[in-house]
């Protein structure tokens, strides 16, 4: 009886907690839509504080930070515009080290700052982001975490020797996605693993991976573009894709909106 009561109370507490978090999230998103960024960001932070492992809350919060930065400083914002989210996630993760999705969003928050930063700060930030993605994997291995860290390695010049690490992570992600129900988002796994093979000077494997992906996702322009290019054209194309100074789309919406 005692334990059943405790469980019931716990369920009640958790559901009310979840309800409160969702309520804060919904209100926060409305405020952001109304361009009331200060109020909206506070509400989203409140939601995340209650559910630090909520991938959607974290992703929407980061997108709101980005919108606000661009509002204050057109184009990419200024580095300081992103410090609010970094400070918030730092505090959040200090108290919730087991929240794998929290680490993932922390890493993405760092990535979001990169285009606004100077060239050397970009390196420091990119390295920090990698460490947070690793913490996410350590907390709970997942397709999204391996995929994300693998792709992050691709943005490093070859001399740093991170292309083999990208291949390893993305091969794991591929292995995982092949055991999961098919979803449109998994086209990214084929694109990225092919890119990793290319960066690792394994062109045949790269083309094979892109071709395999195209059979499953015949409308993918990313795969078609890669397969249509050779030699220097392909290099120019992929160098541009992997240009660390360009903004990477870190909106995770596809994870809960695509089939």
């Amino acid at each position: 009886m005692k334990s059943a009561t405790s469980a019931a109370i716990a369920t009640l507490v958790l559901s009310s907690f979840s309800w409160a978090a969702n309520d804060a999230f919904d209100k926060g998103m409305k405020a952001i839509s109304a361009r009331d960024y200060p109020a909206g960001l506070s509400l989203l932070e409140s939601a995340l504080t209650q559910e630090p492992d909520n991938l959607q809350f974290g992703s929407e919060y980061r997108q709101a930070i980005l919108k606000y930065a661009r509002k204050i400083h057109p184009k990419e914002g200024q580095p300081a515009d992103f410090d609010r989210s970094l400070k918030f996630f730092e505090g959040l993760m200090a108290k919730n080290a087991g929240a794998a999705n929290g680490w993932l969003n922390f890493g993405f928050a760092v990535v979001d700052k990169i285009p606004a930063a100077g060239a050397i700060s970009q390196v420091i930030l990119a390295n920090s982001a990698l460490s947070y993605f690793t913490k996410s994997i350590e907390a709970k291995p997942s397709w999204i975490a391996y995929y994300t860290r693998g792709v992050s390695y691709l943005f490093w010049p070859k001399i740093f020797g991170r292309a083999p690490l990208a291949v390893a992570d993305l091969e794991l992600a591929m292995k995982m996605q092949k055991t999961l129900p098919p979803r449109g988002i998994y086209v990214r796994g084929y694109v990225a693993l092919g890119d990793a093979y290319w960066k690792n000077d394994e062109l045949d494997k790269a083309r094979a991976m892109w071709s395999e992906g195209l059979k499953l996702f015949p409308d993918s322009t990313q795969l078609k573009d890669r397969l249509a290019k050779q030699g220097d054209d392909l290099k120019t194309y992929l160098d541009d894709v992997m240009d660390p100074s360009k903004r990477v789309d870190t909106d995770l919406k596809d994870l809960w909106t695509t089939k």
């Binding site: 100077g118 060239a119 050397i120 010049p157 001399i159 240009d243 660390p244 100074s245």
Partner: peptide
């Protein structure tokens, strides 16, 4: 500086 390592 705009080279392999810095894209300024």
């Amino acid at each position: 500086i705009t080279d392999e390592y810095m894209k300024e």
